[in-house]
Design a binder for these strands. Structure first.
Lengths: 340, 340
DNA sequence: CCGAGGATTGGAAACGATTACATCGTCGGG
DNA sequence: CCCGACGATGTAATCGTTTCCAATCCTCGG
């Protein structure tokens, strides 16, 4: 493959001049520029980003480590991250941790070896030594959605507490009193936070959250199914289940359908994270929607600021309740009454 | 950040020796090795993959250009590609074309500049000059799912024709006679091929495919909705619709639900591409399932072979019909009667 | 006791760009 | 008429590795 030297030779100029033309440096005479460009075209020359990065010590690449590509929430996030990054002139390398800390660390390692300019992470666990390490060494970093407490790293996330409160009120109003929850891993901030919000909201309505009504999931569909089956075996099963993410809600639906139970008559169901398919499920699922696109874009912008030397603040955006039919009657139409 | 030179100095050896230790070269004495490794550890040294790639002219990175990250089919594909690539020691950079040739070319350009070792593409259109160019220059390349005719590039894909025939038979058996289709862009091979398979299958049953019953979509949900609305405005609307991908099927469901029409009583619906959510929609959607994971893995293996200098053959795997309830009664259980 | 040959190790040349600095005309002002 | 400045270009160092080749030091057989 042709190198800058080949172009220089063919155009009868020095490599410095070719480089200047390619980088739009002003100090090049118009006809030299034209000659170089013509030669570039003729040889089909493509600059070698590897060499360029070695010299400039910048790759114009961002790393994004997410916990699960198959989760539509993260897919949408990745999508908006990529869009915004492209607009800012960056490429994105996505690493899928699959909710496994080991894989997450593998990705972080290779991303750092590749000398990405900055890192966007939604940590799969609370204490990855690799992330601590990266943060300590000053890798420009921003957390999205989930974060690790105690690190001086900006966090871009949605606050679902108000929406959870709204959801509990909604369930209460519909007559549900035995509310259960399928939680995410306690090691993730979102896993922990959503449970706390739920517990608090229940307390405000004078409802308990007995231990058997709090099932431990791992944000994957199977765990939702397993926990739901556990609920159903209880002497007094809950009459409403709140899943801490969309995949576990899916698992819960599986379990209920399998037993021939109807939603919401036999059991109400709600989920954290809204996804396009929730409109089409049977019944449509009431969910708490995060402003996913905004999260991704804000995270990239924050990271870009860090790369320019500034210290961007954390960003918290509101989530909102989207009422559909999986908790009971109302829902004349899918217009969201939740927080704005 | 510490470089190999720093390690060499600190360990009192030459950079050559450090490099040998790092690459597992045998000609290093055990205690030198130990000393170097200790130093690496102490300094927290991370090899610079950029410099390494410049020297070795390999990046151990594969590029994957897909047409739409939000489409679960491609997400799953990306997932399996990444898994297999990781197993083979490669990283993957994903580029999302969003069904836009311009964005596709942008991604291919930057991937080539980054000197990825090989390229996996599911082209968004039929004639991208950029792809032709890359192929002509000998970039190791493999097409997945979609391909561009006339290029000497291996194709890894699923053949849906048998399954489409099965689907039409299924619809016919259920009494549907006015079958319509929402097709993908004619410029994509899959778009074209699925229509032809459908048309052929109809002919075998003595059914016509009148022009108004063939709606042009673009593989995105909105187009499915739009085309379906068109069908409904026809003097004699179809009684069954086959969408050429899952997103357009989603759009079709939207359109039908909005008008208060029931599936399958008012209109049967089937889709190409099976996705986890089709089990939970109202009603569950009959679909043609591609062996997505196998496709991704086979594609990576083919590309890896090309990188080792061999010339892997194209691979075609069968798709199969998964009968659910969106076309009519039967479906005692979701066991697929289609092709094996 | 000597040279061959193996085991270790170091020196230095790439890889393909960017960029500080030097060079060389040319030209306008004093 | 001379000088400093400016515009256009070239030279060469540099980024952090890998790897070819040579040098060194032993060990051992003859």
């Amino acid at each position: 493959m042709a190198s800058i030297k080949d172009v220089a030779t063919a155009a009868q100029v020095s490599v410095a001049t070719v480089s200047r033309v390619l980088n739009g440096h002003p100090a090049v005479s118009p006809d030299t520029r034209a000659r170089v460009l013509a030669t570039v075209e003729r040889l089909g020359y493509r600059p070698n980003a590897v060499a360029r990065s070695l010299r400039t010590r910048r790759t114009r690449t961002l790393g994004l480590v997410i916990s699960d590509v198959l989760n539509p929430f993260f897919t949408q996030l990745a999508r908006s991250v990529e869009d915004e990054a492209r607009a800012l002139g960056y490429s994105v390398i996505i690493g899928n941790a699959d909710e496994q800390p080991a894989q997450q660390d593998h990705h972080i390692t290779t991303l750092l070896e590749r000398r990405i300019d900055g890192l966007l992470v939604s940590p799969a666990d609370g204490g990855s030594p690799m992330i601590h390490d990266a943060a300590r060494r000053g890798t420009p970093m921003v957390f999205v959605d989930r974060w690790i407490p105690g690190l001086d790293v900006p966090v871009v996330r949605a606050d679902g507490r108000a929406a959870v409160t709204g959801l509990v009120a909604h369930l209460y109003a519909l007559g549900h009193r035995r509310l259960a929850m399928i939680s995410g891993p306690a090691t993730t901030t979102t896993g922990h936070e959503r449970v706390e919000a739920f517990r608090t909201a229940l307390r405000e309505h004078g409802l308990p959250l007995p231990a058997p009504y709090l099932g431990q999931g791992d944000f994957q569909a199977d765990s939702g199914r397993r926990v739901t089956e556990g609920f159903l075996r209880l002497p007094e099963p809950p009459d409403a289940v709140f899943a801490a993410d969309n995949l576990m809600a899916l698992g819960a639906m599986d379990a209920l359908h399998e037993r021939g139970l109807r939603i919401p008559q036999d059991m109400a169901l709600a989920a954290f994270d809204d996804i396009p398919w929730f409109v089409h499920t049977d019944p449509p699922v009431t969910a708490i929607a995060q402003p996913t696109g905004d999260l991704g874009r804000a995270a990239v912008r924050a990271l870009a600021e860090r790369l320019e030397g500034r210290r961007p603040p954390s960003v918290t955006l509101p989530a909102r309740l989207v009422v559909r039919r999986s908790c009971g009657e109302p829902a004349a139409d899918p217009a969201p009454p939740g927080t704005p």
